[in-house]
Nucleic acid binder design. Structure first.
Length: 193
DNA sequence: GACCAGATTGTCT
DNA sequence: GACAATCTGGTCA
């Protein structure tokens, strides 16, 4: 996994991130798990992307170098984690929507007390809360920081669907997830394979 | 499971 | 001033 891996369009990188391990070496020890759900955002040409109207102070990290983390604050109380892709300036990024918790599960249970581990990281704001990520970690280089990606499983069965929680460009099937994995954020009512 | 309301604040028009 | 790449907790079935 090198810079070249990330320097490709989000629609290519997003499905390839499925099955890989996301790890954050946090203050309470390493936390993370297997990525099971992602979404691609393609920059200014994508109406659903925050980069749609060009760079702003908030979105400038998306316009920077591939392989960096872009974490934003939304709905007044939630954080979402993205990986910047494509060559700098294109503002293409992949939203990490869900992971299967495998590393530091005790720490994540403490960060996010819920009844079942299935609810621990099965959503974009849930996994940032469980892993202890916020805008403080935004901008970190996944190739050289406490936030990193490592090889995990391969040969996963990948399904696609429309992206979730957006108003525009709902016709694009740019959500990718591992089929039948219990940690995917929701059982979509409208699955397209 | 489906549908709905409310939380809560940064960001941009 | 409108809205947001969401979540929780309620109702009804």
């Amino acid at each position: 996994m090198n810079r070249q891996f990330y320097s490709r369009p989000a629609t290519i990188v997003a499905p390839e991130l499925l099955g890989q391990r996301l790890i954050y070496e946090g203050p309470a020890g390493p936390v993370g798990g297997i990525i099971v759900e992602t979404e691609a955002y393609m920059g200014p040409g994508d109406e659903a992307s925050q980069a749609h109207r060009g760079p702003t102070p908030r979105t400038q990290i998306m316009f920077g170098q591939a392989g960096h983390a872009y974490i934003y604050f939304t709905y007044g109380l939630h954080y979402c984690l993205n990986v910047v892709t494509s060559p700098a300036g294109q503002a293409s990024a992949v939203l990490i929507r869900a992971i299967e918790p495998t590393i530091g599960v005790e720490v994540m249970r403490h960060n996010r007390p819920v009844e079942s581990d299935q609810q621990l990281t099965n959503g974009p704001a849930k996994l940032t809360q469980a892993m202890g990520l916020s805008v403080v970690q935004s901008g970190l280089d996944l190739l050289n920081s406490p936030l990193k990606l490592l090889p995990g499983r391969s040969n996963q069965v990948i399904a696609t669907s429309p992206r979730i929680g957006i108003r525009l460009a709902r016709d694009r099937l740019w959500r990718y997830y591992i089929r039948d994995n219990p940690y995917v954020s929701r059982t979509s009512t409208k699955i397209t394979h």
